[in-house]
Structure formats: C-alpha cells, structure tokens
Write a protein that binds this DNA or RNA. Sequence first.
DNA 1: TATGAAAGACCGCTCCC
DNA 2: GGGAGCGGTCTTTCATA
Lengths: 152, 152
Amino acid sequence: MENYQIDNLDKQILNALMANARTPYAELAKRFAVSAGTIHVRIEKMKQANIITGTQVSINAKQLGYDVCCFIGINLNNARDYPDTLLHLKELEEVVEAYYTTGNYSIFIKVMARSIDHLQDVLINKIQAIEAIQSTETLISLQNPISRAVVP
Amino acid sequence: MENYQIDNLDKQILNALMANARTPYAELAKRFAVSAGTIHVRIEKMKQANIITGTQVSINAKQLGYDVCCFIGINLNNARDYPDTLLHLKELEEVVEAYYTTGNYSIFIKVMARSIDHLQDVLINKIQAIEAIQSTETLISLQNPISRAVVP
DNA sequence: TATGAAAGACCGCTCCC
DNA sequence: GGGAGCGGTCTTTCATA
C-alpha cells in the first residue's frame, strides 16, 4: 500500500497516462513492447501504492467563461486565525487552490474568475471581508506558458 | 468547434468526470436519469467545443519522492528578457508551472523538488544562474489544503 | 434537433502457462 | 511476464417525438 519503487516501464506508463488517461492497455503494451497483462499489473501496483490516485478530465476554463486567473498572497492578523480563514476560503468556489506557506504571505491562493469585475467582487466583497485577513497582494496571470506534472 | 452554452446536465457530467474520468456512461445515465446515448452526445459536444480537452491520471507527487512544493517569484533585469528566461525555465523539469504576471514579480513559477537540498540546488544553481534574473523570492508550501477545479 | 434503445466492436480483467 | 477467453463498456445506428 505504501512504497513501491517504480522502474523505467512504470515511468513510461505514467507519462503516457498523464497525457491521456484512457490510452488502451493494448496500445501501451505495443508501444513499450510488453503484454497488455503486464501493463495491467503495473498500473494496478501503482494504484495500490497510491502513486496513481485517480483520473480526471482536463477542462478548458476559458471555454467555461473563466478568463481571469490570479494569485493572491494573504497576510493574517494572527497566525492562529489560519484554520478559520481556510474554512471561509473553502466556501468560495472561485478559490481553486490554497497553500499554507512560509515567506511573505501566510496563505497563498489561486483564484479563477469570469472577468476583472468578477475578480474585484470576489477580492473585495468575499476575501477581504474575512475578518482575520489583514492585507492581500494580487498577482494577475496574463499567461500560463508552462503547465505540466513532475517527471518521474 | 468554438462556442457551446452548457446546460445543467452538462455541468453535472463535467463534475462527475472531473472526479473520475472513467466513469461509465451507463452510470452517469442512471445518476442523471437520461440514456447512455445522451451522455455520449453531450460529452462529444463538449469535446468538440474544446471544453473537455483530454483526460489525465492524477498522480501523487509525494509517492514519487517529490516532497517539497514551492512558489518562486522572479524579477527580471529587463522585461524584454521574458521569452528567453522562459526557455531556460522550460528546460528545468522541476519547474512545473509558470505564469507571466502583473504585480510584484515578472514571472511566477511553481517548483516541485525531492527535498530542501534539492530545492536549494535548483534555486541556486539552475534558476538564479539564469542571467536575466535579477532576484527571486521563495514561498515554501507547507500544506495544500485546497485543490480543485472551477465549478462550471 | 435531441432523445432513447439495441447491436456490434472494443477494452479490461482474470486465469493459466 | 505472456497469452487467451469472458464479461462489461463504449460507440454507433436507427427509430421516435
């Protein structure tokens, strides 16, 4: 369940599945010159080892009307307000990622919004409305030129 | 190919597929009280409309030995160095995301590393070695309590 | 035009080698 | 790790409203 040292074949399978989770086993088998049964065993092992945690469709947020992507660094009045602030942030569907960080900010979040107006509304009326938040800094993303997973 | 206004059923399908891209059509059909054919038609349309762009497995970076996640804000000597710097960053497999941003930093990147030592090596010997980079600020993520997609 | 039902092809799972 | 058969799923087609 815990540890499994992956080998080269596993890496190749992972890379293929990260590009397309529905690649047929037979195709993977052909591509890597092994049998489909082997592919199945390897994938099953990686699922057991919690390396593969699931599958998901990639969706294009822009096509759904979410044009604006930004990061917001949050400073709290007190570090102990963290759990409570997190609960508030979780309720905001525009907040898609949150990180508890060392450095300039206490919490660092990624926000997706439909427009600059929408972002402004979220920032002022929802995020900055949270009492524990002392100040915020916004970084608007104009472009996302790199987006990939770790290479095993 | 371009625009397609999604309805409530599409949203439900999307949400289900974001949790599990391999959910059988028959199960979606049962869950949403329509036929499997309808599910198929809707998914096909969303693919055509470029809303669904693909499928991918979710992998657990920690199980692959990548324990450290951090964000690095980069300041450039000159804004015009951006394209060149990006090319350098692309070559570093530890750099998994990059954003061109307005605000405090020119470029904002997400880095995955195997350890603090590894991160230090990447930061000093690879990132700060890029000539166009003037200064960097590192935010180490201790926790990632929210990670989800936009809700359509 | 979109839905619903059925048939065929394909894929993944399991067993045995 | 490789190969074959079974069961299930996806895709396609056609009829219908």
